[in-house]
Simulated assay, not measured.
Amino acid sequence: MAGGGERGLGPLPPDLRDQLEAALAHRRDGPGALVPFSWLRKLHAHLREEGSPLYLHELLEGSEIYLPEVAKPPRNPELVARLERIKARLANEEYRRITQNVSCQGPRRTGTLVDLGRQVRSVKAVVVTIFNFIVTVAAAFTCTYLGSQYVFKEMAARVLSAVIVASVVGLAELYVMVRAMEGELGAL
């Protein structure tokens, strides 16, 4: 430690001096000295109290960090068995969730007759909607034409009023159909 005094270490307290000598003796015996960082902090605090120009990074210059290997405790066999059961249960649940809509009778359900039935139902719905639209507009035209004979004497005025009322009813019917289809598409 005599060489350390020339670098500005100065007199050390006895406990720090003993720890430093033990670390240096260990260095002579083995590949390097193992010094705990807490001891280096104590040494640095002492040097600061003494007003030494030596900084902590200068003390650590050329040293390496030694991280002891952490020994993992052996795993509890009961815990390992329980974890395996939980993993197997979760895997089965995920498998069931993935395959819930798959069945061995799938090709029979999507045959041509089932597809034909779906198509017929959708075409039937469209035909009924169009028929309803035509009947509603025709009924509005007819009612207005027959009802306007009490108001107008000329045929042109009666036809014009019937066309106007039928157009308004047709537009209202189209609006209702568009809203209904929008609601059906939104539900999908």
Rank of each mutant, 00 (worst) to 15 (best):
Y95I: 01
G62K: 05
L90E: 11
H44F: 11
A2K: 12
R17C: 02
Y55P: 06
H26G: 15
Y55N: 13
N132T: 14
Q149S: 14
K124T: 14
Q105V: 09
M1F: 07
R48F: 04
F133Y: 15
R28Y: 05
P77F: 08
E173Y: 10
L83R: 11
E69T: 11
S103Y: 02
E182M: 12
L59S: 06
M181C: 06
E184R: 10
E61P: 00
V127A: 13
T136G: 13
L34E: 14
P53D: 11
V70L: 12
E49A: 15
L116G: 11
S52G: 08
L56R: 03
G111F: 02
L12V: 07
A180S: 13
P13R: 14
L146W: 08
L24K: 01
V176K: 04
D15Q: 07
R48P: 00
E58N: 04
P107E: 06
A125R: 11
K87P: 02
P14R: 09
V127P: 00
E154I: 02
S167Y: 09
Y150R: 08
R108D: 11
C104E: 12
P77G: 04
F141S: 02
G147W: 10
S63P: 00
V178P: 01
P11A: 12
V35P: 02
V120A: 15
Y175G: 07
R96H: 08
A81V: 01
G10D: 04
Q149I: 03
L188A: 12
L185E: 12
R97M: 06
W39Q: 04
R28C: 01
K153M: 02
M177D: 02
P11T: 08
S63R: 03
F131G: 15
L54R: 10
A166Q: 04
G8K: 06
E58A: 05
D29E: 14
L188G: 06
V70N: 01
L83H: 09
L174Y: 07
L90M: 14
F131Q: 13
T136Q: 12
K87D: 12
D115Y: 00
I134S: 09
I130M: 06
D15K: 04
Q119N: 02
R85K: 10
R97Y: 09
L113K: 10
V114Q: 13
V168E: 05
R109P: 00
D15I: 04
G170C: 05
A156P: 02
V120G: 04
